[in-house]
Each structure stands twice: as C-alpha cells, then as structure tokens.
Amino acid sequence: MPLIEVKNVMKHFPVQKGFLDTLFTRQKEFVKAVDGVSFEIEEGEVFGLAGESGSGKTTMGRLIVRLIDPTAGQILFAGQDIATIRGKQLRLLKRRLQFTFQDPYSSLNPRLTIGNAIADALRLQGIGNKSEQKQRTMKILERVGLSPASSFYDRLPHQLSGGQRQRVVFGRAIILEPKFVVTDEPVAMVDVSVRAQILELMKDLQDEYSLTYLFISHDLATARHICDRIGIMYLGKIVEIADKDRIYTDSLHPYTVSLMAAIPVPDPKAKKGEALPKGEIPSPINPPSGCNFHPRCPRTFERCAEEEPALREVKKEHWVACHLYD
C-alpha cells in the first residue's frame, strides 16, 4: 500500500474581491489552484512536484499535510482518509505529517530563539516536560548540524545564515518524528554553495527516521538530484509523472519537453535545441478549455482544445496527460 494516495483532489479558492464586487456580481469566481490531481507516494520515496509558479504545487503540498482542506477528492495517509480524522487522532496525524516552508526568514518568529522555535513543536503537542523538551531540542540541533547545540539554542533567527536557518526548519519538522515531510522549495533561498549540504542533510534524516518526502521545487536540476520520481504540474494539473531519469531523458508531454529545454545548464558548450513555448502561464481563474497547455503547445491539434486529456500510463511507470499518446 502506498503511504500517500491522492485521488482526484481539487482545491478552488474563491477569488478575493472587494466587498462591493461580492455584493453586485452574482457569479463567483474561483482560482483553480489544484484541479483534479491524482498520484501516489510509496513509503521511503522522495517524490518531486515541479512546475512554474502558479502551477499549484505548493497548494498540493499543503493539502496533503492538511494545512488546508480540499474542495473535492480524497487524500489517504497509510490507507486512511485524512479528512475523516478528528480530535486526538488528528493531533497524532499532524505529528506524522510535517511541512517545511520555503522561506526560513519569514517562517521563523524573529523574536523567538531557535531553541524555543524547535521546542515549541513539542510544547504544542504536549510532549514531555520543560527539561525533557530542552534536552530533545539540543539533540535535534546537533542532529541537523547546528553544533555545538548550546551555542545555537539561544540565538535568534537573524543571527544565522540562510543555510543554518533552513536547518532549524528541518529540526523543527523532525523533532516530532514524522513519517512524511513536505518540503516546499527547501533550497531556493539558500546560496548555491551550501545547497548540496542541505540536500545531504535531507538524505541523512531520511535514512535515520525512515522518512518519505514530497519535494516541491521549481528547480528541476536540484529535483533530479534528490528525487526518485517527479510529477510535473501545469495550471493545477499533473501533466506527467515518471522516474527522475526518464522524465528528463524521455520527456513525453510537450510542456515537460520545453520546461527541460529551458533549464540553464552550467556548460557553455551545451546546445539549446527545443523551441520555447510562447507567452506565459495563464491565469488559473479561467484556464483554457480542453488541455490547459494547448494555446502555448507547439504540437497542438484540434482535439486539444475540445477534450481534456486524462493522465494515463503510456509506458511502464510513466504517466502522461496528452492526446499525442492516445
């Protein structure tokens, strides 16, 4: 049984409008942030969700840890529908599912020492007494490489570097010994020379705590280094899922192809082949008909505007939502 099963999940946010608009417009508008997404994550796997801003990948991550509730669809954690869990069980569930935010600058309270920031997770869950909490926090600080812990415990977030702050964020996530961690762009705000170190830390923590990760990123080069499988999102839908190598070497969806071609490569001799799609990702309020990507797609044909392609397994373990492969 997969650890996480996402079944046709949708999340539509009502468009934030002024009081006046709400009064006088009858039709409600929605941002279709996640619009019918299904995938599974196996235990012990690093699953990547990649796509441009506005593709819905972060919303998808927040849905899985139940930071927000879906408009429709089901999310199963170890076979159990997380929407039906209540009360004490819910608190236990939230301990098992953790989320790390993209921006360690704003996700840490600037006036809270990092020791307290981490110990807070225990306090909120009512685990241990004060001295036990401190002891466990010290251990975690060491574990995430903020050593010696005693010198870091009382520091404030602004006294740390970007990489160190990201370590605090991971410390706070794993102190509750979760099963599953969603990490939203964990290295986007970290200088490139220390990124690999954070990725290494993630891998080590995974081995030690037998974690499963959902790795959300716009950076496919980094994703390819850490993920086992990658799903590509575009305008609230998954267009392709495959093994991290095949999604690059054997990209099927035209969007994936152009996304891969656009990635800057640190090699002056590399040749750029594929033409780029025109324009930019459209608004998720009124997405295009049929296949979302058809207005920008270099290989579009009639059917694409009329019928929405389903995500189908066209090769072994390789899923794509495109009429070209019917």
Binding site: V192, R195, A196, A221, R224, H225, Y248, P266, D267
Partner: peptide, 14 residues
Amino acid sequence: SVPDVRKPDRKLSW
C-alpha cells in the same frame, strides 16, 4: 556545487 540537470549522478559538493 551547481547541479546540472543532465548529470544527475554527478556528486554535488558544498
């Protein structure tokens, strides 16, 4: 330390 999407097996250092 710069990842290269074409070479996922290259070990990244920091």
